[in-house]
Design a protein around this nucleic acid. Sequence first.
RNA 1: CGGGACAUAGCUCAGUUUGGUAGAGCGCUGCGUUCGGGACGCAGAGGUCGCAGGUUCAAAUCCUGUUGUCCCGACCA
Length: 574
Amino acid sequence: MKMSQLLMPTLREAPAEAEIMSHNLMLRAGLIRKLAAGVYSFLPLGYRVIKKIENIVREEMDRKGAQELLLPALQPAELWQDSGRWNVYGKELMRLKDRHDRDFCLGPTHEEVITDLVRREVKSYKQLPLNLYQIQTKFRDEIRPRFGLMRGREFIMKDAYSFDYSREGLDESYEKMYEAYCNIFKRCGLVYRAVEADTGAIGGSDSHEFMVMAETGENEIVHCASCHYAANMEKAVCAAPQELDAASQEMLPLEEVKTPDIHTIEELSEFLNINVEQTIKTLLYQADDEVVAVLVRGDREVNEIKLKNMLGCIELYLAETEIVEKITNAAVGFAGPVNLSGVKVFADYEITNVINGIAGANKTDYHLKNVNFKRDFQVEAFCDLRLATVDDPCPHCGNPVAITRGIEVGHIFKLGTKYSEAMNATYLDENGKEKVCTMGCYGIGIGRTAAAAIEQNNDDKGIIWPMPIAPFHVVIVPIKANDREIMDIADNIYQSFSEKGIEAIIDDRKERPGVKFNDADLIGFPIRIVVGKKSVNEGKVEVKIRKSGEEWEEQLDQVIPKIISLVQADLEMK
RNA sequence: CGGGACAUAGCUCAGUUUGGUAGAGCGCUGCGUUCGGGACGCAGAGGUCGCAGGUUCAAAUCCUGUUGUCCCGACCA
């Protein structure tokens, strides 16, 4: 490939819209361009990266026995009504009508289509297990697309669906996918971690997210340094604390204190000169049609995912001001569990151990001192309802945990029979008895993986592509594009590479060397070979490794085989 | 959907407060000199100032509406 012919519009300055490094560099290196919010074109270099990732995904999926197919992005509403999701999926679903006013949508995911296919074509246990996947563009009308390819409204995704005849079969399929995903992200040169994840509205027992470690990630991960425990913050378990010996502390009499102009827990603890741990925070939530009260210690945050799962509700949000005022008979900020009527009260485990605590008095400008569970208030249940913190012990081994951020590039689920049951995907077993398929689903964001790779591999000069997903392995830079001798040497190097399957690109543009060097660094080709006067006179070229910055001069006949084996070794990350 | 900001040349931005002939740097075209880490000179091309109304002798600038974009939050297989 000759660079002079490539559409490769690099930018000197960062576009104003790019907020994070991967977005910035993808625009600057000429990999992508924006068409609309969350909708991007892939330019030739960017698309090469996408195809590299796709091919790694294909190889690893195929290796586990999955079969590639391609399903339509345009889907009739009937299928979604069939599964019950037409009304549930909400505004995120891109809906449209055809000329006959029939409802369609653009697929955000393909459980419906694949289940429909399988229920039509699979009749016998002899056809199972089956794992089908595709790499295709998905559409989700995200409320807020952001960060370039990180969260788009149109994006490329690999989605796979497994069909088994038993729970055990699903476990096996799931395990295979788990392994495939590990191989894929490892081969992409990423530092990643598989973490336990919430299954959300989708239900099912097990779910793992594959997180690429990066500070710009949208997810928080709780992980243990001593054992293998790692979980998404949404999922991270907070173990129930040891119950204090209630007799060891004397319960003091309940007391009302005036706390005007106190709005935060910090102000309250300062005003009353007590530890934040002594305070009880009371939050009112609207859970579908019901209002519930949730108690957590003042220094804790409610984990709304846990709450949602515990309540089994579909919608959950903090109750509106008017509702809070009506229930507490007080301004917002003074809710408390004592004499709170008309709502169920759920408390985090830790509330058991708050002796003589401080809570809102359900009276504007007043709090209560010496509030104690049982004596002063009752609860519906104690549960794990709070967000984990770095101070929480690992729920598996009890050792300290750390919290870091990550980018979710893959997610695997054990679906069970949710869709196969709703859509009647059945088969006949050995005894001629009709059984429902057990499903799993497995997704990878291809574009997001590319973005995550950049987040993890860049410096002040630009991208540093891992070899397996680099748009080209080697860039050959002839220092003068109009010098015949130099160009001939560059062409010969190119030839010897392509014979060995090494992808090289020649920067034959009539630019000054500085421009070529800066573009090479910006785009992030792993290896750079400079051909100059020394190459003509002494047969030497200069080699530079982008990642390490290592740089040396060497005779052509020696350096070519060396680079070939270097590239091949880097590609062997299988 | 709530809060905030922005929209002027391909890109980054000035000009808007106080209405009066639309600017800079980079990029682009041509010629020349250069040529190992984003060169220099000369000559050019390129914008109905997001769009639609309104006020005014006169609007990039003031007013109203609208669309798009970005950030924070809520939301999210």
